[in-house]
Amino acid sequence: MTVNAAAAHHLQLTRDGQLRHFLTLDGLGRALLTDILDTADSFIEVGERSIKKVPLLRGRTVANLFFEPSTRTRSTFELAAKRLSADVLNLDINTSATSKGESLSDTLLNLEAMASDMFVVRHAQSGAAHFIAESVTPGVAIINAGDGRHAHPTQAMLDMLTIRQNKGTFEGLKVAIVGDILHSRVARSQIRALNELGAEQVRVIAPGTLLPRDVESLGCTVEYDMAKGMKDLDVVIMLRLQKERMEGALLPSEREFYRLYGLSQEKLALAHPECIVMHPGPINRGVEIESAVADGPQSVILSQVTNGIAIRMAVMSMAMGGQVAERQQKRSTLKGDQS
């Protein structure tokens, strides 16, 4: 186990190895990841009913703390919480507290005073979800909805669910992640998940300026030439490219990026004929991906969104379950002490 994994393991699991926070995939084993996928599978059925609710979080309050705007991720978390029958509080902290100079610690104290049971956190800084998990009162579950460049574990897990639905297994799969790996929390979590779940090969395809230092240490191989990287692929995951990258001398132009690393029909033809195409969204048509590919038969981009709700339901119910179990355990130890 790496030092990172050990640190994360300690923070997000109960003593019995149940989830109590969901901050990163570091330190989570294959059995637990599979459990998340299986639980999500069972929730997919809920979304197909006319009454799309289960009572697992009834009477619980879930606060969505978005320090960075994101319509899609927030909506799917909100829907997931509501389908679990929770009360949901949406807070765009970007525009309220922090602009008045309130510190994150103070914001948290205020929210805890409102008796929330779970915080779903999106923040621009790596490690924000860890910080919050370490600062909140015991009993409140923290779900990381993306922190800086560090992790976006629910996105990675919904991607894994989508892959499993289409491929049945991870064994023997060749997967590539293409584009801005350096700035991507999604890529870091995906590489980790694919390694843990047993994918045969994880390739990252990007120019040198968009790769973190010693990226191979994360568990992948590097390919600068996309045509070579596409060979025999079963899954290709495209990443979103931010416009700012042109200004920081990381890329010369969108046009050159698309020519070299955009997913066109020609490049897709180099992969395995049943290769699926994924993208965490929102997509930049003509920058990362050709429209015909995004809307084509190999694209599973929209089922990623649907799966997002099921994965978030799974993670939220599991983390709340871990918190409840831990509380009961503490209570019974206390009783034991008294008798």
Partner: peptide, 15 residues
């Protein structure tokens, strides 16, 4: 430090 830990945790590195 722009090294293994920063790459894994997505920290901004000082090379």
């Amino acid at each position: 430090h722009d090294g293994l830990v920063a790459s894994r945790l997505g920290l901004l590195g000082i090379p």
